[in-house]
Design a protein around this nucleic acid. Structure first.
Lengths: 225, 225
DNA sequence: CTTCTACTACAAGAATTTGCATAAGCTGGT
DNA sequence: ACCAGCTTATGCAAATTCTTGTAGTAGAAG
């Protein structure tokens, strides 16, 4: 797990690097914004920790620059001030989390874990176009689903629902979450479309002895591989 | 984990309450600012979700009033507008985070998690999804409870009650507190549902030589690990 | 130790809700 | 207008929730 720390204050950077290394992370330190954009931008980091106050460039500017260059690595911003404006612009320009100095190291670690956990997840899911769960095969490149070798014809909505469930494999997702993720933003909860589509999906991808979608009563549904 | 939602638009509040409950939070809904200051201010919430537009009082005013009264509960503001000015005043007056409607439910959940995570830190609670007490195992991600390896089938209400007891492990909780937290009932309406559900729970998760729920006569119940 | 009282446990059944399948209505593209 | 896909509506079985009523129990008072 590789972390890039961008920080020009030696006291803080020492503290960060030492602490993170003790927790088992591989840490690289960079002391100015320019080098980040020149050298470090091409390396695949698992997380970038960015101080909002740098000598040569505003941290938020750097953040903006990174996002502009399509760097989607999780970014955790550090700030000495508890400035409201900073917080807003940091999160607005695509920071994933925000921490105000001084902070407890435990809190930093917990946020680092949270951010890298998500990353692990995405890395696990994204590069694999071909997913397999027992007899069920999903090709995300070709939008093709097969069950025991047989092609399964899914409508766009059914497919989207299946993908959402698979992306959250092992986790219970609520109807409201599904409604949001698969149907888009809506405040309408007097609908049973989710139930109906779960039913459609089950009838298409499940057999008597092959179940993938499990009902969690009172909550929602869960996909198991 | 108890959340107070202050929202007067029924569609949105339904959606919020349902969604949050499905995600395992104990949610209480309040439809106007006055009641918050009168009744709900004395209850210890883990998070308050506050709409910036309320019929009887501006959300920011309510926020100010709460902070003035030394309520330091994390507050997440919701707004229909994407106004920067609103954002700034909300955060200036002590909101901990800000979300613009319409939003993805997943985003709300992630912010709720972030805000309650910090709280957990202060309380030094374990942010673990997998809890274990002797032979009893609770997986909060999968809503799954096992006793000595055996899966225990709990109804939603039973599960919620168990979670509430576990969250207050070692502390005696009164029937009124339980009623309030698990049933969302803020008044005593002479019901013995709590007793009944305690009984249900005991029959499902306890054995002759494995007790978890202890009766504190005249007061309530206590969970011991 | 016995009695009394307030409290607690739990069984049984009524009322309600939920999940699911099916059917029927709707919509946008061709 | 047709069709596929999407959404809403409806009915039903099963699960869940909640009330009622009774038996049981702990602990104080005598």
């Amino acid at each position: 797990m590789q972390i890039l720390v961008v920080e020009d204050d030696n006291r803080i950077s020492n503290f960060l690097v030492k602490g993170l290394e003790e927790c088992g992370y591989l840490v690289t330190l960079c002391k100015n914004a320019e080098d980040v954009l020149k050298q470090y931008i091409n390396i695949e980091w698992d997380l970038i920790i960015l101080d909002i106050m740098l000598a040569d460039m505003d941290g938020v500017q750097l953040l903006q620059a990174l996002r502009y260059k399509k760097v989607y690595t999780p970014i955790l911003m550090l700030s000495a001030l508890n400035s409201v404006q900073d917080k807003i612009s940091a999160l607005d320009y695509g920071a994933d989390d925000y921490l105000t100095k001084p902070f407890h190291f435990d809190e930093l670690i917990s946020r680092v874990r949270a951010l890298t956990r998500r990353r692990q997840y995405e890395q696990l899911e994204t590069p694999k176009a071909e997913l397999q769960f027992g007899q069920l095969q999903i090709n995300r490149e070709q939008y093709k689903v097969t069950l025991a070798g047989q092609h399964v014809e899914l409508s766009p909505r059914e497919y989207k629902l299946l993908i959402y469930l698979v992306e959250n494999i092992g986790k219970t997702v609520s109807r409201v979450q599904i409604l949001n993720a698969v149907w888009g933003i809506t405040f309408d909860n007097h609908t049973n479309v989710v139930d109906v589509y779960i039913s459609y999906l089950r009838s298409k991808i499940e057999r008597e002895d092959m179940k993938y979608i499990f009902t969690v009563k009172g909550v929602g549904y869960m996909f198991k591989g």
